[in-house]
Design a protein around this nucleic acid. Structure first.
Lengths: 221, 221
DNA sequence: CCTACCGATCGGTAGG
DNA sequence: CCTACCGATCGGTAGG
């Protein structure tokens, strides 16, 4: 047990060790991400994942050590997926209103036609965990807080550069954009509302309307 | 079994029958509502409720017949609670912008200082069930859809009465108000953000801004 | 990565 | 409303 070297079962098989193990780990996380998007992270069960993947329960939990460690790993993977889809394509743009508008476009695309069956993973788990305690909740808070701060930061730059009206509060922008995204996610997932993406775009355009007198005016007069 | 009259265990006790049964049912639903606001309706377990209430599991499930019937009953109770707190106080106002503004005030109050530990019950279960199937999801869709239609209807009246600008889309109003509420709920529950209610009020005031030229102007110039 | 197994708990039922 | 019980499943471990 604590006697140093354990028996290495993988030495029994001639196939590559670490590589295949990483593949299995990835397959488990990938499947768990799909399931958790609809069932939540707490709704995950080792037995269902094992059935889905043709593994034993021990084979599912082994690479992670516990269900909670799996939950945390899946959350990280989902965050990478969101960042790659929404932020990465616009990250190289110059900070400010331009990048914020581009990010919202990507964000709305991502919610309107989500890669996971349950829609926005973060929204699902943030709602699931906002009344619980522990490491998973803490990780959700960190992830969602980081995203809101990204929005806040670009809004702040935009205000200083006079790309947004001077009386705009960056925290208000982040708050409202987040609400638009959540309302869109609910409209798509709960009501299959095909008009919701257009509504989200209109709402976001108003939140990010440039100062009057810049190019086109905001509305009439 | 199907032989007509079963043994009536309550006849054994001298206490009133239907009245006490209704009390027990109410106590179970009340406790289940508190738990479900944080753990979700699927997260409810008969065992935990039994422990909380000093009942047996059979005593918990008996009055409802199944966990699903309990879930549906709890959902209805939560809807009544929301309606009583948010809509009932303003229902007698005249339809239109005035009532919509008053309802949003109540709504924001309700989310800022929620009576249930998990915050907005409907938001929690709507997110929990948006990717599932069955009677509970269907009931959530009905409840949330009804609320959005209430907002939509008053916005429509307000536009026709020129209490809102003529180019305002009532569905857009309902969509945006719902987003503000969801963002507020998340800010309170996940971040304990004391500034969020004020942000929600500001955002709602903008969505419900009267036509320019009515009393005060919307912003500058 | 497996088989075999653990105690705990799940929703629910029989019968009174 | 209870006790006593059902089969199924939960997360997880031992050992290889």
């Amino acid at each position: 047990m604590t006697s140093g070297r354990e028996l290495d079962w993988s030495a029994v098989s001639p196939r590559s060790t670490a590589e295949e193990a990483a593949e299995t780990r990835g397959a488990i996380m990938s499947r768990a991400m799909v399931r958790a998007s609809t069932e939540g992270l707490e709704g995950l069960t080792l037995g269902h994942l094992a059935d889905d993947l043709g593994l034993s329960k021990a084979g599912v939990v082994g690479p992670f050590g516990s269900k909670q460690a799996l939950q945390l790993a899946v959350l990280q993977l989902a965050i990478v997926g969101f960042t790659d889809a929404v932020w990465k394509p616009v990250a190289t743009l110059r900070a400010g209103r331009e990048r914020l508008v581009a990010a919202c476009d990507r964000w709305i695309d991502h919610l309107a036609d989500p890669p996971l069956p349950g829609g926005c993973f973060i929204t699902t788990v943030a709602t699931e965990w906002d009344g619980r305690e522990g490491p998973v909740r803490d990780a959700v808070v960190v992830a969602q807080g980081r995203w809101l701060r990204v929005l806040h930061a670009d809004a702040e730059v935009a205000v200083r550069a006079r790309e947004l009206p001077g009386d705009v509060d960056p925290a208000q922008v982040a708050f409202e954009l987040n609400g638009i995204a959540m309302s869109l996610n609910q409209a798509v997932q709960l009501f299959h509302d095909a008009d919701a993406p257009a509504r989200a775009r209109l709402a976001a355009a108003r939140v990010l309307a440039p100062p009057s007198g810049t190019r086109r005016r905001s509305r009439s007069k």
